[in-house]
Design a protein around this nucleic acid. Sequence first.
DNA 1: AGAGTAAATGAGAAGGATTCTCATTATCGT
DNA 2: ACGATAATGAGAATCCTTCTCATTTACTCT
Lengths: 155, 155
Amino acid sequence: MPVDDQDGTTPGSAWTSRALAELTARGYRAGEARTAVIELLGAEGGCLEADDVAARLRLQDKRAGTASVYRALALLSELGLLHKVALADGPARFELVLPDGEHHHHIVCDGCGRTVAFSDPSLERAVHAISDQTSFLIEAHDITLHGICEDCQAG
Amino acid sequence: MPVDDQDGTTPGSAWTSRALAELTARGYRAGEARTAVIELLGAEGGCLEADDVAARLRLQDKRAGTASVYRALALLSELGLLHKVALADGPARFELVLPDGEHHHHIVCDGCGRTVAFSDPSLERAVHAISDQTSFLIEAHDITLHGICEDCQAG
DNA sequence: AGAGTAAATGAGAAGGATTCTCATTATCGT
DNA sequence: ACGATAATGAGAATCCTTCTCATTTACTCT
C-alpha cells in the first residue's frame, strides 16, 4: 500500500474522508452507492471514467447502478471535490481535487490515444493573470495538449 | 456584408477558398454536401456545432445529410482546416483555422452556458515552452476556462 | 461531349455515453 | 423504532455521433 505522508495515509484516502465529511456537512446522506463511489475514487486516485467506476465496483460486489454512479460523479464535481475532464473523444474522466490545489493537465497522443499528465507553474500563472483581466469569475480551467507520442513518432 | 481587408474579402471567404483548394490538391472531390459545408463555415466564421451546420444548410435548401456534415467536419479537422473544440457538456464545436495561426480559446459560464472567446500571448508562450520540454510532438492545444459571467454573478 | 470508375452522398440503423423516470429502499433526525 | 425524504437502480429515453450500403455524383480519360 503506497504511503505518501507522515501519518500513513494516501492523498486518496484523505480525499475520501474529506469528501464524505463535506457531503454530510452539506446535508447529503451517505447512501450505499455514493459512499462506494467515493471510496473507490479515493483508493484509485482518480482519472477514471464513469464506466470504470461502475465496473470496478461490480468486481468488488458492490453493486451500484449506472445512474447512481453518474449521479455521484456529478454531485462531487458540483461540490468541487472532483474535476470532470472531457477530452475530444470518448467519455469524460474524473480527477480528484486535492485541498492543496495541486492539479495537472493532460497531453493526449492523437495517434494512439494515450494520455499523460503534466503540470507547469508558468502555465498556471498565465491562466491566473487572465482571470484577473476578465469580468468572469474564473473557477477552473481545462488545458489539453494534443500531439504525437514518442512511440507513434517512431512507428 | 462585412469587409475586413483591402481586397473586399472576409477571413471566412478566404478560408473557404483555401479549404476548397486544399481538398482538391489532396485529391478529394468537391461533392455537393462537402462544398456546402465549407461555404457555410466560411460565411459564418466558425464556432458552429455539427447540428447548427446541418440546420443552416436546410434553411438554405441545400440538403446535406447528417452523415455528410459530420464527415465533412471530420475531414476538415483532419486536414487542419478546422479545429474541433469539445467542451465538457454538449456537442463539439468547430472553429476555422486561419493561416496566420491566429487562434483563441474559450471562457464558459457554468451558470448560463454562454461562451466567450479570448486570446492571450503569454498563455501561448507558456504552452510553447511546454512543447519544448516533452517528448510528445505537440500539434495543438485546447484551453477552456470555466467561471461565472457578470450576469450570473449579479442574478 | 460521353463513358467509366471511384468517391461522395443520404436515409436510416446502430452505437456509446449520459440522463431521466419512477417505484422501491435506505438513511438520519426525532 | 418511526417517519419523512433522500438515495437507489432497472430500464427507458435522449443526445450526439458513426456506420452501412444502395444510389448518385464528380472527375478522368477518351
